[in-house]
Amino acid sequence: MNKLQALYRANRGRGKGLRVEATDDDEPRMMIYDIIVSSDADAEWWGGASAESFVRALQTMSAPRVHVHINSPGGDAFAGIAMAQAIRAYPGEVVVHVDGLAASAAGFLVASAPRAIMALGAMIMVHKSWTWAVGNSNDLIAQAAVLEKLDSQQVELFKTKNEDYDWEAALAAETWFTATEAIALGLATEHAAQEPGQPAAKAHAFDLSVFGRAPSVPETTSSPLEVEAANDPDQVARRSRIARMHKYRNP
């Protein structure tokens, strides 16, 4: 299984897709709390926030300011590129908020916004592009050339935030930026206001095991299937019977 498919499979059902929320101050909020996929058809299969729906929703808006909230492990690179272009093309102001994690393709959206706000505990991650390929040596060499071009496009995008930083090395190393580091680089612009007693952003709600250098954080959340099972009396009774069986088999 290729890494992108593994990312999709590991996080299927963990996110909330794409949501658009109207607010009293006439500043709509778009919530990307999921993997990023290209089309609505992909979203029906894998789950996720689709570039197709995001671009369509943004194009119908006319508010002077729109807020885009992100907590995403990334996904389809070209979907992220399309979403980033929609942000740049919006006639008003688009403010991006990294509420948890903006990894991989989700980082493109951060880099495309003139104003990016980082929550306490939030992170941004960049890495070299992934793909999958089959065929002979010529096919694989050609695919590698495409990946190199895509990585050069990533560098070009991130250089708009900091021209002097070594983005090639950052991509090669799979680099995770804290909020403070991202702001110091110019990748983000500011910290989110932290109200007294407000919890830090949950930057690790997703399964990040497909990445090589993801911070090691104990899993504290349950998947939707686990929550559903926990609330199902039949499931609870079944697990109880299994537990008793193991108890007697392994005194």
Rank of each mutant, 00 (worst) to 15 (best):
residue 3 K to T: 11
residue 5 Q to C: 01
residue 6 A to M: 10
residue 6 A to F: 07
residue 12 R to A: 14
residue 21 E to F: 05
residue 22 A to N: 09
residue 22 A to P: 02
residue 23 T to L: 14
residue 23 T to A: 12
residue 25 D to S: 15
residue 30 M to D: 00
residue 31 M to K: 05
residue 34 D to S: 08
residue 36 I to P: 00
residue 37 V to S: 10
residue 38 S to C: 08
residue 43 A to G: 06
residue 45 W to N: 07
residue 48 G to Y: 01
residue 48 G to E: 03
residue 48 G to K: 04
residue 49 A to K: 06
residue 51 A to L: 04
residue 52 E to V: 03
residue 55 V to K: 07
residue 59 Q to W: 00
residue 60 T to H: 05
residue 61 M to S: 08
residue 64 P to K: 15
residue 65 R to E: 06
residue 66 V to L: 12
residue 66 V to M: 10
residue 66 V to K: 11
residue 66 V to R: 10
residue 66 V to P: 10
residue 69 H to K: 08
residue 69 H to R: 13
residue 70 I to S: 02
residue 70 I to D: 01
residue 72 S to C: 12
residue 73 P to C: 11
residue 75 G to D: 05
residue 80 G to N: 11
residue 82 A to G: 08
residue 82 A to Q: 14
residue 84 A to P: 09
residue 88 R to I: 11
residue 92 G to M: 10
residue 93 E to K: 14
residue 94 V to E: 08
residue 94 V to I: 13
residue 96 V to D: 03
residue 98 V to T: 04
residue 102 A to K: 09
residue 102 A to C: 09
residue 104 S to H: 06
residue 106 A to N: 11
residue 107 G to D: 01
residue 108 F to M: 07
residue 110 V to K: 02
residue 114 P to Q: 13
residue 115 R to Y: 07
residue 119 A to R: 14
residue 119 A to W: 06
residue 119 A to G: 03
residue 121 G to D: 02
residue 124 I to V: 13
residue 124 I to H: 01
residue 128 K to L: 12
residue 129 S to L: 00
residue 131 T to V: 01
residue 136 N to D: 15
residue 138 N to V: 14
residue 139 D to I: 00
residue 139 D to S: 00
residue 140 L to K: 02
residue 141 I to D: 00
residue 141 I to Y: 00
residue 142 A to I: 00
residue 143 Q to A: 04
residue 147 L to W: 00
residue 152 S to D: 14
residue 152 S to G: 13
residue 153 Q to W: 01
residue 154 Q to H: 08
residue 155 V to T: 08
residue 156 E to V: 10
residue 157 L to G: 04
residue 161 K to P: 02
residue 162 N to D: 12
residue 166 D to Q: 12
residue 166 D to N: 15
residue 166 D to F: 08
residue 170 A to P: 00
residue 171 L to S: 07
residue 171 L to Y: 08
residue 176 W to S: 10
residue 177 F to Q: 09
residue 181 E to F: 03
residue 182 A to H: 10
residue 184 A to D: 07
residue 187 L to D: 03
residue 189 T to W: 06
residue 191 H to V: 05
residue 197 G to E: 15
residue 198 Q to K: 13
residue 198 Q to V: 05
residue 199 P to W: 06
residue 200 A to Y: 05
residue 201 A to Y: 07
residue 202 K to E: 12
residue 202 K to R: 09
residue 203 A to V: 02
residue 205 A to C: 06
residue 208 L to V: 13
residue 209 S to P: 03
residue 211 F to Y: 15
residue 212 G to L: 06
residue 216 S to I: 13
residue 217 V to C: 09
residue 217 V to K: 09
residue 218 P to R: 11
residue 219 E to I: 15
residue 220 T to M: 14
residue 236 V to D: 09
residue 236 V to C: 04
residue 237 A to C: 05
residue 237 A to W: 12
residue 239 R to C: 12
residue 242 I to W: 04
residue 243 A to V: 04
residue 244 R to F: 02
residue 247 K to L: 13
residue 248 Y to E: 13
